[in-house]
Design a protein around this nucleic acid. Sequence first.
DNA 1: CATGAATGAGACTTCATTCAT
DNA 2: GATGAATGAAGTCTCATTCAT
Lengths: 212, 212, 212, 212
Amino acid sequence: MTQPIFKQLRLVEKENRRLAIVDVAERILNDEGLEAVTIRRVAKQAGLSSGAMYMYFKNKEELMLCMLVQNLRLLKKDMSACIDDNNPVEAIKKMGYHYMRYFVRFGKHINILSFAVKNKEKYGDLNPQMLSDLEAVLSELLSLVQGLLSTPSMSGALQGIPPERAVPVLWALIQGLVQITLPIQSTEAPTYNFDQVIDDATRIFTYRSARP
Amino acid sequence: MTQPIFKQLRLVEKENRRLAIVDVAERILNDEGLEAVTIRRVAKQAGLSSGAMYMYFKNKEELMLCMLVQNLRLLKKDMSACIDDNNPVEAIKKMGYHYMRYFVRFGKHINILSFAVKNKEKYGDLNPQMLSDLEAVLSELLSLVQGLLSTPSMSGALQGIPPERAVPVLWALIQGLVQITLPIQSTEAPTYNFDQVIDDATRIFTYRSARP
Amino acid sequence: MTQPIFKQLRLVEKENRRLAIVDVAERILNDEGLEAVTIRRVAKQAGLSSGAMYMYFKNKEELMLCMLVQNLRLLKKDMSACIDDNNPVEAIKKMGYHYMRYFVRFGKHINILSFAVKNKEKYGDLNPQMLSDLEAVLSELLSLVQGLLSTPSMSGALQGIPPERAVPVLWALIQGLVQITLPIQSTEAPTYNFDQVIDDATRIFTYRSARP
Amino acid sequence: MTQPIFKQLRLVEKENRRLAIVDVAERILNDEGLEAVTIRRVAKQAGLSSGAMYMYFKNKEELMLCMLVQNLRLLKKDMSACIDDNNPVEAIKKMGYHYMRYFVRFGKHINILSFAVKNKEKYGDLNPQMLSDLEAVLSELLSLVQGLLSTPSMSGALQGIPPERAVPVLWALIQGLVQITLPIQSTEAPTYNFDQVIDDATRIFTYRSARP
DNA sequence: CATGAATGAGACTTCATTCAT
DNA sequence: GATGAATGAAGTCTCATTCAT
């Protein structure tokens, strides 16, 4: 009867070490780019042998997936804090800002959805637990946005389009904005600026809601 | 007197072979993803030795750049055909459609802008001709969209935001839409559909212009 | 408590394998010339995959440097054994002989000094430990020669030139002798013979010391 | 009867073009180092196709050999101008200076003798004409030095050693001096200086001749 | 549990040389 | 004579992954 508890503790420790490794991997991703995220480098910086990595992740792919889920959870947490039914326009802007930060951290390197989809085809043998975690956090994110679009004050802007259908539009707008302004912003003479563009976008997008 | 003609013919042939190689590279990009686009594989599928590739492209980077420019030209051609000042909303939709096709073909794998920016820093020695070609086609594309947004019937939707500032918003929206709907669409039970989403988006985006 | 010992043993083994690889590289250098010393060939003859070479040497350059240091250490050991303050002339001859052997083994292919200088510029990231080893053994070698030239019985031959300035002259003479006699000696009908030439050289060089 | 003249002219032209190519190769050797001397690069800079190179040189090896002979001829010409029976010591210094210049130009990259010997083994099929040219110019060079050492005023320094045996000693000294001082001289804080070292060397070497 | 040596494939790239045109 | 496209081998190096210890 004591065994199960032991085992459980072991599992918890293992999960913690997993997270620690993911942290290291993320730091490398940020500091040196996607190509620098190699099993060896992560292992070394995590104080492990490269062989040991395979005790925590079946694959390099699984490590990447784990990073993705981790980051999406963070994004969800940040976005949750933005909800403000009294001022959905402002909330949208804030969400956009958090998405940008997520994008800079992670999304820049790995596209969520194409990753998920592509890998479902190729690596059908990825950890199913992790895949369902991914789906879970994704749907939570969408719910967040949908909740926002369901506030009465937004209905004007949506022009009768049901919120669940407006979600992808809003999400797409934000993602597109980030992607398009980000690389330009790092130029010497940036022609666009994220803050301004997102401001314009929300103005256009929420025209009706502004003056009900 | 015949020599120059000969040489010119040679050059034309060479250019054709370049394009053929780019075609092969693109096929691989589509079928197997970005990482599969290696000099070796392209060469083999093009029926060349890997060494011969360097007769046509100084670099792997130059090959990629060549693909990018090629695709953007196609996109511009397709978009140009959509211009319709009498019905800018419809034009936007069509452009979105073409952008989607471009994105499926190419943009999915390589982000234009981040590519351009990153490489300007790292590979200052890329074929300058090609780089200026890239800049040219990019600015032409932007002009197209800007032209569209400058039609009187659009001014309502923009709410006083000058067209040049609305361009990135529109572009971002389209790009975002494509990215977000595309991978989901290829799922077994797609929850979104590109055509519908872009329809909703234009409805929201151009609310004012619809009923002046 | 046993772990550290284990690790140490591992390190010793690794160092031994390094040396074994250097041995192989040297054999190739001797048998087939400098250009034949490629990572691939060394690896194959050492019974390794080319990839494995990079466990022992960060670079091809590091391998070369390792060979160089190894050989200079041998040279120094051999030269040290020649010191004989009572008969510096004979000592010089013996040193010349050892330098010749070193030269045949290694120096023929790679010029110490130009290697050291060139690489300090280009590869500032070479193993610093090894670079300092190189400098150490080089200065020890120079000290040896300088010590020899500082014996009172040599002062006559130097004609007031301080020993530290005579060092390069002597060294150069020996290096030049070796280089010039060696290739000719391997001809079918050698016109010069190292032993005779070095004999003549010391006679000329140390004229005064011979009859004080 | 006219044919032979034609052919002869053709041959002269061909020889001239050969020399032009050698010139180009040498420029590359000087400017960019030995590894930069590739058939392609030489061809391009000479305004030829790479294929055409093989009309003038059977091999890359033959091109190198041609460069070598060319340079030795230049060296011989320069050295010839130094002969001064009244002041052989000064003449030796000047010869050393010219050897240094030759060395910087060419010898630095390719060792005469080891080249000659090695290639006689490996490439027995090198142009025999050229090989005999090489031998000829080499022996002329040795004669020059030998002539210098045969002047009466030198006999003291040689201590009875016949001039033909002193030749390699002197040559070796010079070659060694150049090799040893040159790389150090390009350091930031050069410890040796060619002019000074050669001065010291001649002082030691010609002790007797200075004060008969 | 953990190590790290080793593999084997593959990445990009350059080169001397040949040969159809 | 001359071209330049093409080859094939070789170069250095990195990586995910496995396995004896």
